[in-house]
Design a protein around this nucleic acid. Structure first.
Lengths: 208, 208
DNA sequence: CAATAAATTAATCATTTGATTAAAATGTTT
DNA sequence: AAACATTTTAATCAAATGATTAATTTATTG
């Protein structure tokens, strides 16, 4: 049967996927029961298996889409050799903060899955990201060689940059635990960080 | 019955707790089955309930001990008003990095639980930590007022400090995904960070 | 040693949970 | 409308899972 042109995509399949995405991203694979998904989506339990064969298959779909969302755009930004390092950093930070403001649970989900994967078999980092990272690191190394930034292991820089961007979202319950930090205030602070993080990184990188 | 003096504490109760700690900390509550714990501990399934009443109760014990471990010492370091800010930072960073090197999964476990708690009822931050944080923030505010450090929301500083320390452990699978980063190399880099993070933070804080 | 308490085991229960099935409802085609 | 395919539903299954029980073994006490 030919699918109708999806306008709002409120098809059953999509309802299940959206419910599953919310729950899986928030609670992880094991904590979510197929009946939870069915209830959240407002559909019959059997339809989950009708459309996705199994809970695991459904999760794999969500997982793939989540990884793609987390990764999409980043490779493009990092790979562009013409953009100087500082501008690239600004772009990257802005991109990630915007994304995490929209879907705050995403970071946790991704890193959790990587950790689980690490405990089991191998880890699957999208190759585009690995490539983009190599390119970024070459650019960093060049800056170091030119003496424009301090010489430290590039991994430190990657960790610092990502950590400054991502960590507040992972630790948001701790940070919000102060009375005067509302959700709104938190988001404002994250917006501030778009400008602050590149400045901070630059300060950290001053040679000497 | 009087307990024998615990020498190595290889009692059944302790074996269960250690197995449960490993599994819960690594995989979370839902993913761990009581039979997994029994197998890991090498004991009969019924003994788990004999000693801890239920899976939930056992988890609560582990949870409390994990939080305590994550928090212990920090309040002491932060609260000492006599120690100047920079020295305090060095102590704090060293303490956390040492702890996370010993038990790398701990950070993830803690933040995950806080997130889950946040989705449900309220969040429970140990009051000692809240108090210590207030005190630390006062000290920071004083430095700002004296013009010795840049004026930004203290929450940024807390996020930066914690993020620089904790994030590498949360993202270690990503960071290790490079061929030349072994576990040993990773640990060495974390040791380096003990000295680097205070320097970085100082650079970030330069008023100006 | 006998008696009592504590620790351990195997078997079993009652739910939960992922998945399937057969029938009913809805939609599409001719 | 008749025939057919697709989607949805209620009922059910089999395995997994947290927990309990009754019996057995081991340790402690009088």
């Amino acid at each position: 049967m030919k699918r109708k042109i999806k306008v709002v995509d409120s098809t059953t399949e999509e309802k299940i996927k959206e419910a599953a995405r919310r729950l899986f991203t928030q609670k992880g694979f094991e904590a979510v029961k197929t009946r939870d998904i069915a209830a959240e989506a407002g559909i019959n339990l059997a339809l989950l298996n009708y459309y996705f064969r199994s809970k695991q298959k459904l999760f794999d779909v969500i997982m793939m889409e989540n990884v793609r969302q987390f990764v999409q755009g980043v490779a493009v930004i990092l790979s562009d050799v013409d953009v100087p390092l500082y501008a690239k950093m600004e772009k990257l930070v802005g991109h990630y903060i915007d994304m995490l403001c929209a879907t705050p649970d995403l970071a946790f989900f991704i890193f959790n899955q990587m950790r689980i994967a690490g405990h089991n078999d191998g880890i699957t980092i999208p190759p585009e990201i690995l490539a983009a990272r190599e390119m970024m690191q070459k650019q960093i190394s060049a800056e170091m060689a030119a003496g424009r930034i301090a010489k430290v292991d590039p991994l430190h820089l990657m960790a610092n940059l990502l950590g400054l961007v991502v960590f507040p979202f992972i630790a948001s319950p701790l940070l919000k635990a102060r009375r005067n930090i509302t959700d709104k205030k938190f988001m404002e602070l994250m917006q501030e960080r778009k400008k602050l993080i590149p400045i901070w990184i630059s300060a950290m990188l001053k040679p000497g």
